[in-house]
Protein backbone atom coordinates (compact mmCIF):
# COMPACT_ATOMS: atom_id res chain seq x y z
CA UNK A 1 0.00 0.00 0.00
CA UNK A 2 1.46 3.35 -1.05
CA UNK A 3 -0.89 5.61 0.83
CA UNK A 4 -3.63 4.98 3.34
CA UNK A 5 -5.55 7.10 5.80
CA UNK A 6 -7.64 5.82 8.67
CA UNK A 7 -10.46 7.49 10.58
CA UNK A 8 -9.78 10.83 8.94
CA UNK A 9 -11.95 13.56 10.44
CA UNK A 10 -12.20 17.18 9.42
CA UNK A 11 -14.48 19.84 10.84
CA UNK A 12 -15.08 23.38 9.63
CA UNK A 13 -16.54 25.07 12.69
CA UNK A 14 -19.44 22.94 13.86
CA UNK A 15 -19.79 21.17 10.51
CA UNK A 16 -18.07 17.82 10.18
CA UNK A 17 -16.96 17.50 6.58
CA UNK A 18 -15.03 14.23 6.79
CA UNK A 19 -16.57 11.66 9.11
CA UNK A 20 -13.87 9.14 9.85
CA UNK A 21 -12.78 8.28 6.32
CA UNK A 22 -10.72 5.14 5.60
CA UNK A 23 -9.06 5.49 2.21
CA UNK A 24 -6.11 3.88 0.49
CA UNK A 25 -4.21 3.89 -2.79
CA UNK A 26 -1.93 1.20 -4.17
CA UNK A 27 1.15 1.79 -6.27
CA UNK A 28 0.13 2.35 -9.91
CA UNK A 29 -3.57 2.66 -9.11
CA UNK A 30 -5.79 5.35 -10.60
CA UNK A 31 -8.44 6.02 -7.99
CA UNK A 32 -11.26 8.27 -9.15
CA UNK A 33 -13.41 9.84 -6.45
CA UNK A 34 -16.90 10.78 -7.57
CA UNK A 35 -19.81 12.22 -5.63
CA UNK A 36 -22.09 15.23 -5.29
CA UNK A 37 -20.70 18.72 -4.82
CA UNK A 38 -20.08 19.58 -1.19
CA UNK A 39 -19.72 15.95 -0.18
CA UNK A 40 -16.12 16.47 0.99
CA UNK A 41 -14.16 15.00 -1.96
CA UNK A 42 -11.89 18.01 -2.34
CA UNK A 43 -11.41 18.29 1.41
CA UNK A 44 -10.28 14.66 1.47
CA UNK A 45 -7.73 15.37 -1.25
CA UNK A 46 -6.47 18.52 0.45
CA UNK A 47 -6.00 16.63 3.69
CA UNK A 48 -3.82 14.09 1.90
CA UNK A 49 -1.40 16.89 1.00
CA UNK A 50 -1.76 18.83 4.31
CA UNK A 51 -3.34 21.81 2.60
CA UNK A 52 -5.96 21.31 5.30
CA UNK A 53 -5.19 20.19 8.83
CA UNK A 54 -7.24 17.18 9.88
CA UNK A 55 -8.86 17.01 13.31
CA UNK A 56 -8.20 13.29 13.70
CA UNK A 57 -6.85 10.32 11.83
CA UNK A 58 -3.65 8.61 10.82
CA UNK A 59 -1.81 8.32 7.54
CA UNK A 60 0.60 5.71 6.30
CA UNK A 61 2.60 6.99 3.37
CA UNK A 62 5.53 4.97 2.01
CA UNK A 63 5.67 3.09 5.30
CA UNK A 64 5.81 6.27 7.38
CA UNK A 65 3.16 6.60 10.10
CA UNK A 66 1.78 10.11 10.47
CA UNK A 67 -0.65 11.50 13.02
CA UNK A 68 -2.87 13.65 10.80
CA UNK A 69 -4.07 15.88 13.61
CA UNK A 70 -0.52 16.64 14.77
CA UNK A 71 1.81 16.09 11.84
CA UNK A 72 5.48 16.87 12.35
CA UNK A 73 7.04 19.43 10.04
CA UNK A 74 9.24 16.69 8.66
CA UNK A 75 6.19 14.50 7.92
CA UNK A 76 4.50 17.31 5.99
CA UNK A 77 7.68 17.91 4.01
CA UNK A 78 8.05 14.17 3.34
CA UNK A 79 4.50 13.84 1.99
CA UNK A 80 4.79 16.95 -0.17
CA UNK A 81 8.21 15.83 -1.40
CA UNK A 82 6.73 12.57 -2.67
CA UNK A 83 3.34 13.77 -3.87
CA UNK A 84 2.07 16.54 -6.12
CA UNK A 85 -1.22 18.30 -6.64
CA UNK A 86 -3.10 19.59 -9.65
CA UNK A 87 -5.66 22.26 -8.80
CA UNK A 88 -9.09 23.05 -10.15
CA UNK A 89 -8.09 26.67 -10.84
CA UNK A 90 -4.62 25.66 -12.08
CA UNK A 91 -2.88 27.93 -9.55
CA UNK A 92 0.08 28.51 -11.83
CA UNK A 93 2.45 31.05 -10.31
CA UNK A 94 1.27 34.29 -11.89
CA UNK A 95 4.66 35.97 -11.68
CA UNK A 96 6.49 33.11 -13.40
CA UNK A 97 6.59 32.04 -17.05
CA UNK A 98 5.32 28.64 -18.15
CA UNK A 99 8.87 27.27 -18.12
CA UNK A 100 9.63 28.74 -14.69
CA UNK A 101 6.35 27.36 -13.33
CA UNK A 102 7.47 23.84 -14.21
CA UNK A 103 11.04 24.38 -13.00
CA UNK A 104 10.22 26.07 -9.70
CA UNK A 105 9.37 22.91 -7.77
CA UNK A 106 12.48 21.13 -9.07
CA UNK A 107 14.71 23.99 -7.94
CA UNK A 108 13.11 25.02 -4.67
CA UNK A 109 11.35 21.80 -3.68
CA UNK A 110 13.99 19.30 -4.74
CA UNK A 111 17.17 21.39 -4.76
CA UNK A 112 17.97 20.78 -8.42
CA UNK A 113 20.43 23.01 -10.26
CA UNK A 114 18.52 25.87 -11.90
CA UNK A 115 19.87 25.35 -15.40
CA UNK A 116 19.10 21.63 -15.33
CA UNK A 117 15.58 22.31 -14.02
CA UNK A 118 14.90 24.84 -16.78
CA UNK A 119 16.12 22.36 -19.39
CA UNK A 120 13.78 19.70 -18.02
CA UNK A 121 10.94 22.21 -18.03
CA UNK A 122 11.72 23.19 -21.60
CA UNK A 123 11.78 19.53 -22.73
CA UNK A 124 8.48 18.92 -20.96
CA UNK A 125 6.89 21.87 -22.76
CA UNK A 126 8.20 20.56 -26.10
CA UNK A 127 6.70 17.14 -25.46
CA UNK A 128 3.35 18.79 -24.72
CA UNK A 129 3.58 20.83 -27.93
CA UNK A 130 3.73 24.02 -25.87
CA UNK A 131 7.33 25.05 -26.61
CA UNK A 132 6.15 28.34 -28.13
CA UNK A 133 4.52 29.24 -24.81
CA UNK A 134 7.65 28.68 -22.69
CA UNK A 135 8.11 32.37 -21.96
CA UNK A 136 4.44 33.20 -21.63
CA UNK A 137 2.96 34.16 -18.28
CA UNK A 138 -0.22 32.39 -17.11
CA UNK A 139 -2.27 35.47 -18.06
CA UNK A 140 -1.24 34.86 -21.68
CA UNK A 141 -2.30 31.21 -21.71
CA UNK A 142 -5.69 29.59 -22.25
CA UNK A 143 -7.26 27.64 -19.40
CA UNK A 144 -6.43 24.37 -21.13
CA UNK A 145 -2.79 25.35 -21.61
CA UNK A 146 -2.57 26.47 -17.98
CA UNK A 147 -3.93 23.20 -16.72
CA UNK A 148 -1.63 21.14 -18.94
CA UNK A 149 1.30 23.11 -17.55
CA UNK A 150 -0.13 22.59 -14.06
CA UNK A 151 -0.03 18.84 -14.72
CA UNK A 152 3.50 19.10 -16.13
CA UNK A 153 4.55 21.04 -13.01
CA UNK A 154 3.35 18.07 -10.97
CA UNK A 155 4.76 15.26 -13.15
CA UNK A 156 8.33 16.63 -13.49
CA UNK A 157 8.67 16.18 -9.75
CA UNK A 158 8.29 12.42 -10.37
CA UNK A 159 5.98 12.09 -7.38
CA UNK A 160 4.79 8.75 -6.07
CA UNK A 161 1.22 9.99 -6.28
CA UNK A 162 -0.47 12.93 -8.01
CA UNK A 163 -3.65 14.35 -6.52
CA UNK A 164 -6.02 15.90 -9.07
CA UNK A 165 -8.68 18.23 -7.69
CA UNK A 166 -11.38 18.54 -10.37
CA UNK A 167 -8.75 19.37 -13.01
CA UNK A 168 -11.24 20.02 -15.80
CA UNK A 169 -14.09 21.73 -13.92
CA UNK A 170 -12.95 25.27 -14.72
CA UNK A 171 -12.29 24.57 -18.40
CA UNK A 172 -14.34 25.31 -21.49
CA UNK A 173 -15.82 22.04 -22.75
CA UNK A 174 -13.62 22.08 -25.88
CA UNK A 175 -10.45 22.31 -23.80
CA UNK A 176 -11.30 19.41 -21.50
CA UNK A 177 -10.19 16.78 -24.03
CA UNK A 178 -6.51 17.75 -24.20
CA UNK A 179 -6.21 17.80 -20.42
CA UNK A 180 -7.89 14.41 -20.09
CA UNK A 181 -5.58 13.04 -22.81
CA UNK A 182 -2.56 14.13 -20.77
CA UNK A 183 -4.01 12.44 -17.70
CA UNK A 184 -4.82 9.29 -19.66
CA UNK A 185 -1.20 9.09 -20.90
CA UNK A 186 0.04 9.47 -17.33
CA UNK A 187 -2.22 6.67 -16.15
CA UNK A 188 -1.02 4.42 -18.96
CA UNK A 189 2.58 5.14 -17.93
CA UNK A 190 1.78 3.70 -14.51
CA UNK A 191 1.55 6.95 -12.54
CA UNK A 192 -0.36 6.55 -9.28
CA UNK A 193 -3.20 9.05 -9.31
CA UNK A 194 -6.09 10.12 -7.10
CA UNK A 195 -8.58 12.09 -9.17
CA UNK A 196 -11.61 14.00 -7.97
CA UNK A 197 -13.73 14.60 -11.05
CA UNK A 198 -17.18 14.85 -12.54
CA UNK A 199 -15.88 13.45 -15.87
CA UNK A 200 -17.66 10.12 -15.81
CA UNK A 201 -16.26 8.88 -19.13
CA UNK A 202 -12.74 9.40 -17.78
CA UNK A 203 -13.73 7.60 -14.59
CA UNK A 204 -15.17 4.66 -16.55
CA UNK A 205 -12.30 4.34 -19.01
CA UNK A 206 -9.20 5.20 -17.02
CA UNK A 207 -9.86 4.44 -13.35
CA UNK A 208 -8.68 1.24 -11.80
CA UNK A 209 -10.99 1.92 -8.88
CA UNK A 210 -13.96 4.20 -8.28
CA UNK A 211 -14.78 5.63 -4.89
CA UNK A 212 -18.25 7.08 -4.43
CA UNK A 213 -18.18 9.73 -1.74
CA UNK A 214 -21.15 11.35 -0.07
CA UNK A 215 -21.81 13.31 3.10
CA UNK A 216 -18.23 13.10 4.34
CA UNK A 217 -17.80 9.38 3.93
CA UNK A 218 -17.07 6.69 1.40
CA UNK A 219 -20.36 5.07 0.42
CA UNK A 220 -19.01 2.54 -2.02
CA UNK A 221 -15.74 1.58 -3.65
CA UNK A 222 -15.01 -0.86 -6.46
CA UNK A 223 -14.05 -1.35 -10.09
CA UNK A 224 -15.62 1.02 -12.65
CA UNK A 225 -17.77 -1.84 -13.94
CA UNK A 226 -19.00 -2.73 -10.49
CA UNK A 227 -19.78 0.83 -9.33
CA UNK A 228 -21.28 2.09 -12.60
CA UNK A 229 -23.11 -1.04 -13.72
CA UNK A 230 -23.83 -2.93 -10.51
CA UNK A 231 -23.82 -0.43 -7.64
CA UNK A 232 -24.39 -2.06 -4.27
CA UNK A 233 -25.71 0.99 -2.43
CA UNK A 234 -29.00 2.78 -2.99
CA UNK A 235 -27.32 6.20 -2.62
CA UNK A 236 -24.88 5.33 -5.43
CA UNK A 237 -27.77 4.28 -7.65
CA UNK A 238 -29.55 7.59 -6.94
CA UNK A 239 -26.44 9.62 -7.80
CA UNK A 240 -25.72 7.71 -11.00
CA UNK A 241 -29.39 7.83 -11.93
CA UNK A 242 -29.43 11.61 -11.55
CA UNK A 243 -26.31 11.84 -13.70
CA UNK A 244 -27.84 9.69 -16.42
CA UNK A 245 -30.92 11.93 -16.50
CA UNK A 246 -28.80 15.03 -16.95
CA UNK A 247 -26.50 13.74 -19.68
Amino acid sequence: MLLSVKKLEKRFGKRTVLKGVDFSVDQGEVVVIIGPSGSGKTTLLRNLNFLENADAGTMNFKDRQIDLAHPKKDDVHFVRRHSAMVFQNYNLFKNKTAQENIAEGLIYGQGMDKRQALTIASDELKSLGLAAQANHYPSQLSGGQQQRIGIARATVLKPDVILFDEPTSALDPELVGTVLDDMRRLAQAGQTMVVVTHQMSFAKNVASRIVFFDDGQIVESGSPDQVFNHPREERTRQFLGALAENY
Binding site: N49, F50, L51, H77, R80, R81, A84, M85, F87, N89, N91, L92, F93, K94, N95, K96, E104, G105, Y108, G109, Q110, R153, A154, L157
Partner: peptide, 21 residues
Protein backbone atom coordinates in the same frame (compact mmCIF):
# COMPACT_ATOMS: atom_id res chain seq x y z
CA UNK B 1 -4.36 31.83 -1.40
CA UNK B 2 -4.06 29.18 -4.14
CA UNK B 3 -0.63 30.59 -4.98
CA UNK B 4 0.70 29.67 -1.55
CA UNK B 5 -0.97 26.27 -1.74
CA UNK B 6 0.63 25.62 -5.12
CA UNK B 7 4.03 26.68 -3.79
CA UNK B 8 3.65 24.32 -0.84
CA UNK B 9 2.42 21.50 -3.04
CA UNK B 10 5.61 21.59 -5.15
CA UNK B 11 7.64 21.36 -1.95
CA UNK B 12 8.70 24.98 -1.47
CA UNK B 13 9.35 26.04 2.11
CA UNK B 14 7.50 29.03 3.52
CA UNK B 15 10.42 31.40 3.02
CA UNK B 16 10.85 30.57 -0.67
CA UNK B 17 7.10 30.67 -1.20
CA UNK B 18 6.97 34.12 0.40
CA UNK B 19 9.91 35.69 -1.40
CA UNK B 20 9.54 34.02 -4.80
CA UNK B 21 5.79 33.82 -5.21
Amino acid sequence: PGQLEAARSVGMNNRDALFRI
